[in-house]
Design a protein around this nucleic acid. Structure first.
Length: 480
RNA sequence: UCCUCCUUAGCUCAGUUGGUUAGAGCAUCUGACUGUUAAUCAGAGGGUCUCCCGUUCAAGUCGGGAAGGGGGAGCCA
């Protein structure tokens, strides 16, 4: 029954008319007791279905409410009205699912993103979220295509991990032990995990990087793309407790290769979305433009969404070292006039959001790659530079959303790595498996982590990360 | 977790120095019209003013607390 259906996107692209077609979808509006705007999610554009006067029972027409699901068969004809090239003249209309108009929460009008977030199970049916999630899909697909074309192996790293030494953030505990206090305890009162499901303490992964490195020491080029969990109490527009991360890890790459890969990757996936989701991006660009008009002049961005994406695709990112960045910031008028909340005085401190924003949005006005940070503000696995005080790290900062990529050349020298771990009080015995890569055929290698939702945010122009993942998880929120 | 702002109809919002029966637009319902494009026109229904405590003759309005939400910061991707 269903396989004769034609998707609305395909039907709207059809050059010919005068043939019979069956469509299925959800009613967006029903105007004038005759005109159904029908959407099936294949595109934001609705198909106009015409139910000619007198040809349908009143009882049927009454059920054509916003949100109802219907099946229509009829003739595809050139539209008699303006606004669309073709329309479907209905011969039969079957109601597949009623929608009580008094209770259906979506109305043919503008809704706030905050309201739609409360009905995330329904928001797919709006133009905005339709566009966002089709673009999200394209980006995900493009990611696999990019790496596949380059001969990378897609590695599935575990979601449940035993290691708690990765240092990437607070973890969610995974256990089958009872929570009522009856769990077995050690002599010192701490929980004894011997009888837990895995016989040890386990957590949800915060990163697949360490496992990625293991595989890179065999396949040379690998990447992961999967869910990641952080139990940080972060309440911001760019953090989630459950998010998707892309983590390539490449043997024989140094920091510069790593930057080149990241830049090529970002360009590729954006370009892909621009080709595949032209209409959706135009819709979101329009939406953003109207939103910008509500803001005071000084807060408006200079470039529209499409200009911004084109700019990123066609221009190199700005590359500079942490030391150079500090110099620019220290010499900036902004700093001299004490406009930063945290003034830049010396070398060695981590940059605040306001500093990153200044560099990206005011000084360079494009994505920036910062490299060679002081070792003391970075992770243990990053390669120590010749100067002995910086590491071969890189962060890519994007306008509007800040850090989109964090990566580094890894420390491949066993003695240097273990020394660093000792300094940072990371128990080497727990990461013996990781250190084995440095013991048996170690090699220079590099990789990075890219937050998928931040990428989707950048491409769609959405301001809040909770609006670019179907069902966002964040503190005090795990509905749906 | 910290700072800050917000919470009034299904949605988006007005609501004056505290003062009778809390308003508008959209949505919904009823009717009219019938080639509409967020259709139009007429009418109707719809409120525990987030919750608790307090001040007062009187609280949507003032004070305290809680919950939820927005924005910013930190942590980071």
């Amino acid at each position: 029954m269903f396989n004769k259906r034609i998707k609305i996107k395909a039907l709207l692209a059809e050059e010919n008319t005068g043939f019979e077609a069956t469509v299925m979808g959800w009613v967006r509006t029903f105007r004038n007791n005759q005109f159904i705007a029908l959407n099936d999610g294949s595109t934001n554009n609705n198909l106009q279905v015409v139910a000619s006067l007198g040809e349908f029972e009143d009882s049927t027409l009454k059920r054509l409410t916003t949100g109802a699901c219907i099946k229509v068969t009829g003739q595809v004809i050139a539209s008699l009205g303006k606004g669309q090239k073709v329309e479907l003249k209905a011969a039969t209309i079957e109601i597949l699912g009623d929608s009580d108009a008094e209770k259906f929460p979506l109305q043919p009008k503008k809704h706030s993103l905050e309201f739609l977030r409360e009905i995330a199970h329904m928001r797919f049916r709006t133009n905005t979220f339709g566009a966002i999630f089709r673009i999200r899909h394209s980006l995900a697909f493009a990611i696999h295509q990019f790496f596949n074309d380059k001969g990378f192996v897609y590695l599935h790293t575990p979601i449940i991990t035993a290691s708690d030494a990765e240092g990437a953030g607070e973890m969610f505990r995974v256990t089958t032990l009872p929570l009522d206090g009856s769990a077995p305890k050690n002599e010192d009162g701490s929980i004894n995990f011997k009888d837990d499901f895995f016989g040890r303490s386990t957590n949800l992964t915060v990163s697949g990087q360490l496992e990625g490195e293991l595989a890179a020491m065999a396949f040379s080029d690998v990447y992961t793309f999967g869910p990641t969990f952080r139990a940080e109490n972060s309440n911001t527009t760019r953090h989630l407790a459950e998010f998707w991360m892309i983590e390539p890890e490449v043997a024989f790459n140094d920091l510069e290769d790593n930057m080149n890969l990241a830049e090529a990757f970002i360009r590729y996936v954006i370009k892909y979305a621009m080709e595949q989701n032209k209409e959706d991006l135009e819709f979101l660009a329009q939406r953003l433009e109207e939103e910008e008009k509500q803001k005071p002049q000084q807060d408006r961005s200079e470039m529209g969404l499409l200009d911004k994406l084109n700019f990123v695709v066609n221009n190199d990112f700005e590359r500079l070292t942490y030391t150079e960045a500090i110099e620019i910031l220290r010499e900036s008028n902004h700093n001299k006039k004490k406009k930063f909340q945290y003034l830049i005085e010396g070398w060695g401190v981590d940059l605040q959001s306001e500093h990153e924003r200044y560099l990206v949005e005011k000084h360079f006005k494009k994505p920036v790659i910062l490299t060679n940070y002081p070792k003391d503000i970075k992770s243990f696995y990053m390669r120590l530079n010749e100067d002995g005080k910086t590491v071969a790290a890189m962060d890519i900062l994007a306008p509007g959303i800040g850090e989109i990529v964090g990566g580094s050349q890894r420390e491949e020298r066993l003695d240097k790595l273990t020394a660093r771990m000792a300094e940072m009080h990371i128990p080497a015995e727990e990461l013996n498996w990781y250190l084995d890569t440095r013991r048996f055929g170690s090699c220079p290698h590099a990789g990075f982590g890219l937050g998928f939702e931040r990428l989707v945010q950048f491409v769609t122009g959405m301001g809040n990360i909770r609006d670019v993942i179907p069902f966002p998880r964040y503190p005090k929120s795990a509905e749906f």
